[in-house]
Amino acid sequence: MPDIVVRRHSVHGMPTEEYASALRERLPDREVAVARTPASERDLVTDAAVLTGSAIDESLLERAESLRLFASTYAGYDHLPLDALADRGVALTTASGVHGPNIAEYVVGAWLSLARGFLRARRQQREGVWQAFQADDFAGSRVCVVGLGAIGEAIVDRLDGFDVETVAVRHSPEKGAATDEVYGYDEAHEAMADARYVALACPLTDETRGLVDRALLRTMHPDCVLVNVARGPVADTDALVEAFQRNHLGGAVLDVTDPEPLPGDHPLWDFENVLLTPHNAGHTPAYYERLADIVAENVRRAESTGSWDGLENQVGL
């Protein structure tokens, strides 16, 4: 029976066999199997020490008698049965950090695209209109990054050289940051009051749900460009629509929405200064390679220490 089982759910449409191959390259002494059907999942998981995939339900967990680690292929874990994993003594790790470089590129690219008027240029090109228009400078702006996990830190890193003022909003501002200023979530208004570019890269928690509401949108500069690569509910959708209807926001690039997927008749589709992408900012052809690095290192660490604790990206259960 295999040591590591890869569930059949692909990430961003990439074949799971690529993930299994990456694991085999890093762990040649371990047997890695891909569970291609529900039946094979139920069979293979019974003796596996490691199961990896986007999710696990309690019925499958009950069959996993030897399971020591569930390695999620997602960075988020609020959809997982945390209590059941804890009760069975199964460690949980995430894909945190895998998305950092590509999502950071998405955010900076989104800011630059709206600053330089690329959306308008593309619209005029489709219409065959040759008409000069004014654009903004990204340099000299105040840029705010909300959330300083792996993604938020990667965004801040990529702002070096752009000659911008950087501020961050994080759960524990006392930890500091590689930014000019750091604020707590209760100081979001102060952090964003003069920001022209804001990125939401925080987890969805009770503290961040609805963080960008009508009150905060009124505080934000009317030329501000908002990018959301966090979760849709971090921003109040109705408040966003109202802000655009009243010209209270300069633009937005939204990789996540609430609801998701966004209904085809939703008003957010119709604003010329809003760009919507289908929750794929996290896609990178290197996804499985980066993920396999994390999982393989954790397997080696557990083998060395004899404990499935103290792992990279481990979630405290």
Rank of each mutant, 00 (worst) to 15 (best):
H266F: 01
N280T: 07
S307C: 00
T305G: 00
T277V: 07
T284K: 12
P263W: 07
L268C: 08
V274P: 13
N280W: 06
E289Q: 15
G306K: 01
L291G: 13
A296E: 13
V299I: 09
A292L: 03
E289I: 06
T284P: 12
A296L: 11
G282F: 09
E272T: 06
G282P: 02
W269A: 10
A292V: 02
N298T: 06
G282L: 01
E289D: 15
A292H: 08
N273H: 13
H279S: 06
R290N: 02
H266N: 11
A296P: 11
R290S: 00
H279N: 09
A286P: 09
Y288G: 13
L276Q: 15
L268N: 10
G264E: 12
N298P: 06
A286D: 14
A302I: 07
N298K: 05
P267M: 06
E272L: 02
E289P: 12
E260M: 04
S304D: 09
L262W: 03
A286S: 14
D265W: 02
E297M: 10
A281I: 02
E260H: 14
P259H: 12
H279L: 00
T277I: 00
N273F: 01
T305E: 00
W269M: 05
D270C: 02
V295M: 05
E260K: 04
H279K: 05
L262R: 04
R301T: 09
A302T: 05
L268V: 08
F271W: 02
S307V: 03
Y288H: 13
V299E: 03
T277D: 03
T277M: 04
E303P: 04
P278E: 05
E272A: 15
P267G: 10
T277Q: 02
P261Q: 04
N298A: 06
D265N: 12
Y287E: 11
G264N: 08
R300K: 08
G282K: 03
A302S: 12
Y287G: 12
D293G: 07
R300I: 08
E297Y: 13
G282Q: 00
L268P: 12
L275R: 13
H266L: 01
T305D: 00
D270N: 14
N280Q: 10
E272Q: 14
L268E: 09
F271H: 03
Y288M: 10
L262H: 08
L276P: 14
L275M: 15
S307K: 01
H279Q: 05
P278H: 08
V295K: 08
A302G: 02
E260G: 05
I294Q: 13
P267Q: 11
G264L: 13
R290I: 01
H283N: 07
P261C: 02
V295F: 03
I294N: 06
H283M: 04
A302L: 04
T277H: 04
P278R: 12
